[in-house]
């Protein structure tokens, strides 16, 4: 019995949060940093880093919630619309409603949690397909934004509220601090709590999780709620950043939220991935965008290049686990198993 003698040292709480197999993406980030620095030394300035970090923070927070959903084997196509609708509602509360801006933010996040749990309930209780449910609710939420705003931005955001999107704590922009906080919490939750581990279990084998006594439906509702809540928070931060509740908030956030997770090593079939990887994935995408500007490449190329990197990430992942019997296909694309 070769069990007890040769086992590796016990992992600490922190090493579980951070130390997982993201070496590939870290290497890619460093490599890209070197290339950009050689092309344009302005890359390595604190000012530039502030800009990149601030830019990435909004989408990264959305991507963190999306990662949880992907880990569960689902997908949330409505995060962008939830972000936009919550942001518009929050902006209306603090302008025409006269509610304290930070209370409004809290209420907007609650509304995001609510929207997410509607998704979760439809998917978990009625066993509907996540792709279709969130496609539909996303349309509803996006449409509601236009109904509420008639396409006009909501102006007159109180000045005090600017701190959320534009302020700094020392050298660190506030949105970056919030992003880091959210990632730290979610990374801890996914790696060190019973709830987080259950997300991996349900995502890895939903049928078995029921027989192991896990309440997969409850977990599913909570995960979609978290995705909605984090999207709403990002939306409110963006209101603060732009000084306005624009109806376009979140409209372009959906795809990057999924892309960041995939580049960060999260599998679309569920059960595999890390929150920390998603942070790196988001960072990678932001640096790429920044590098394209700094290297005087036409920014029209950005999406082409990011698309290619997603393909590379997926192919690397496929090679890594070829033969191990794990499907690359997301659950919602699989045929239902016959018995």
């Amino acid at each position: 019995m070769a069990t007890n003698n040769d086992r590796p040292p016990v992992k600490s709480v922190l090493s579980r949060v951070t130390g997982i197999k993201e070496s590939g993406i870290i290497l890619a980030i460093i490599l890209m940093g070197v290339v950009i620095t050689i092309a344009n030394p302005n890359f390595l300035t604190p000012y530039n880093f502030q800009i990149v970090a601030r830019q990435v923070s909004f989408i990264a927070i959305v991507a963190a919630g999306q990662t949880l959903v992907l880990l569960l084997g689902g997908i949330d196509l409505s995060v962008g619309a939830i972000a936009g609708l919550s942001a518009v509602l929050g902006a209306m509360m603090m302008t025409s409603g006269g509610v304290d801006p930070f209370v409004s933010t809290g209420l907007a996040v609650l509304f995001g949690l609510f929207c997410g749990s509607i998704n979760g309930l439809l998917i978990a209780k009625l066993k509907l397909n996540a792709f279709i449910v969130t496609l539909a609710t996303g349309e509803v939420f996006a449409g509601a934004i236009l109904v509420l705003t008639k396409g006009y931005a909501i102006n007159g955001i109180p000045e005090i509220f600017q701190v959320l999107g534009q302020g700094t704590i020392g050298p660190v922009p506030v949105p970056v601090a919030i992003m880091l906080l959210i990632f730290a919490i979610l990374a801890w939750v996914t790696t060190n709590t019973p709830f987080g581990r259950s997300v991996f279990a349900v995502g890895g084998n939903r049928e078995a999780s029921r027989f192991a006594g896990l309440h997969s439906e409850r977990i599913e509702v909570m995960v979609y709620a978290i995705a909605g809540g984090s999207a709403a928070l990002a939306g409110m931060m963006f209101v603060s950043r732009m000084n306005a509740g624009q109806p376009t908030i979140g409209a372009s956030w959906l795809m990057p939220s999924i892309t960041a997770a995939i580049i960060g090593g999260t599998s679309l079939s569920g059960g595999v991935g890390t929150i920390f990887g998603t942070l790196l994935g988001a960072l990678f995408m932001a640096l790429l965008g920044n590098g394209i500007v700094l290297m005087n490449v036409s920014s029209y190329w950005e999406r082409v290049i990011i698309g290619l990197f997603v393909l590379i990430a997926v192919i690397v992942d496929l090679i890594r686990r070829r033969g191990s019997g794990m499907s690359m296909l997301p659950r919602w694309l699989n045929f239902r198993k016959r018995s």
Partner: peptide, 19 residues
């Protein structure tokens, strides 16, 4: 299909109900 969580380790598979 119904017993194991293939992508999780031995310890997690064993302790999932008592986490």
């Amino acid at each position: 299909r119904l017993g194991i969580f293939p992508a999780l380790g031995v310890a997690e598979n064993m302790t999932l109900p008592i986490l």
